[in-house]
Amino acid sequence: MSDTFIISIVTFIYFAAAFSYLISFVFRKKPVAFIALALTVLGIIAQTSAFIIRWIHSYKLGIGHIPLANFYESVTFFSWSIIFIYLVMGVRYKNSLIGALANLFAFILLAYASLSGDMSSQIQPLVPALQSNWLTIHVISCFLGYACFAISFGTSVLYLIRQRFKKNPVNFLPEPEFLDEVTYKMISIGFVLLTLGIITGAAWADHAWGRYWGWDPKETWSLITWLIYAAFLHARLVRGWKGTKMSLLSIFGFLAVVFTYLGVNYVLSGLHSYL
């Protein structure tokens, strides 16, 4: 079975998981949440095998490298990271809505990877600059960080919706304190991972080009993202901010993540344009 075929199946699994989580949330049905969790686990197992199959296949083509080297591969890995972070960090909140969010994001990313016209799913040879072990840990830590930020973005949006319709009696969303707490936890983990990502990126640049920081657009934007989240943590730890202002900061931060990830490639160009 080809890895791209498995990925198209996984796309549907994540959709089904998101849907089941939503059903379980709206109708407060525990067994459905269990089915949703089982689907999520099935999805990530299948996606991990697709990753390994693709990896092995690249060696058969004589251009062997870990599949983290082009846009298609990075988008699929992003979706994998979100599910991974959900299973490691998010499950213990025992809230179906978080599961629905994670699966929905993963589904959207995979659907985008398969349907978008400007993305080739072919395995491509690796240019010499990318042939480095730093690449692997750099990409993995960045994407795990982005995954945390994606989930905190989701909980922040829910927080704002929840606050906007405070007086609405059919408000079935989770307690605002809970959403605020999840946002904060996810951002603290994501921040450490992003820091690790930036540091390993700098180490790699130092190895490949003899300089650890070059104000390349991607580097600059990752620094801006980092500063926004540092501001978030300070607002919370130093000023004791909570609630709406924090949600807005977190949404802001995630927009910076998206711009760092996509905008820089489409709008600006630089060393990272291969992704």
Partner: peptide, 27 residues
């Protein structure tokens, strides 16, 4: 060949390691 003479790199790396240690302790 790209040639660079970068002073202070080791200070930067020390800072990076300290930063990560600080995060682990702190979080």
């Amino acid at each position: 060949i790209q040639v660079s003479r970068s002073h202070g790199v080791n200070i930067v790396w020390a800072g990076c390691i300290l930063l990560l240690v600080g995060f682990v302790l702190s979080l």
